[in-house]
């Protein structure tokens, strides 16, 4: 298995799977997951700015514009589902691998498949009954009972979209992995769904430190 490395590029950070030898579809999934995650990150950053402004307005000018806490609650809820995909692709969903580590590779692969199926099953149920909730919110035009009176369907639809994206990406990942298993491409399947191997991560760790040093240097030079 030959893995090309481009030290310091975004895709490698944080244990992301190397997508170079993956199909366009997988690359699209990866891009979608990253984009969703980045959007959430900006949402959290925006929430912190809005809350800071609210604190300042309240304490300096005695003004109250309420709702920053409510909106950041929605930001967190949306993040909770939109982050699922990137976390899956980066293989950062926590698995307790004490036993896994000592099992033979074929069993490991079986458990990897089972893991994706389990995630898909649970969050698929959340998606299904989440839709029931959103449908109800739309039907009765539910609003938050706060001063803001937000129509709940808006944040809930965004929240549900994150779940749908996750289920879609997880299903694609599962199909691709099963396809590779059927072709007896064990390593290819491992690259898609296995727990991050120690070796792989040592490389990343080094890369990460190198790029951080590089950036810190850059920052210093530019200041």
């Amino acid at each position: 298995m030959e893995r090309h490395r481009r030290p310091g590029t975004g895709a490698h950070r944080r244990g992301q799977v190397n997508m170079d030898n993956h199909s366009p579809l997988m690359r699209l999934c990866s891009k979608a997951g990253d984009a969703a995650a980045l959007a959430c990150g900006l949402l959290i950053l925006a929430a912190s700015v809005v809350i800071t402004l609210e604190i300042m307005a309240r304490n300096l000018f005695g003004m109250s514009f309420n709702g920053a806490d409510e909106l950041s609650g929605y930001a967190l809820a949306i993040t909770s589902t939109w982050a699922l995909s990137a976390t899956l692709l980066a293989r950062r969903h926590i698995r307790i691998d004490s036993l896994y580590a000592i099992l033979p590779r074929p069993v490991q692969l079986a458990l990897d498949v089972l893991s994706i199926v389990a995630m898909l099953a649970f969050f698929g149920l959340v998606l299904r009954y989440g839709w029931v909730m959103v449908d109800r919110s739309l039907t009765i035009n539910a609003k938050s009972m706060t001063p803001l009176g937000t129509p709940l369907a808006i944040p809930q639809i965004l929240w549900l979209a994150g779940l749908a994206l996750f289920c879609l990406i997880a299903a694609i990942l599962l199909c691709k992995a099963l396809g590779r298993l059927l072709r007896r491409d064990w390593n290819g399947a491992r690259q898609l769904i296995s727990n991050r191997s120690t070796l792989e991560e040592v490389h990343e760790e080094l890369e990460d430190a190198a790029s951080r040093d590089g950036q810190a240097r850059q920052a210093k030079e530019s200041s």
């Binding site: 309240r58 109250s64 309420n66 709702g67 806490d69």
Partner: peptide, 8 residues
């Protein structure tokens, strides 16, 4: 004419 704050 109070100022309202929302606190969990």
């Amino acid at each position: 004419q109070g100022s309202s704050v929302t606190i969990p």
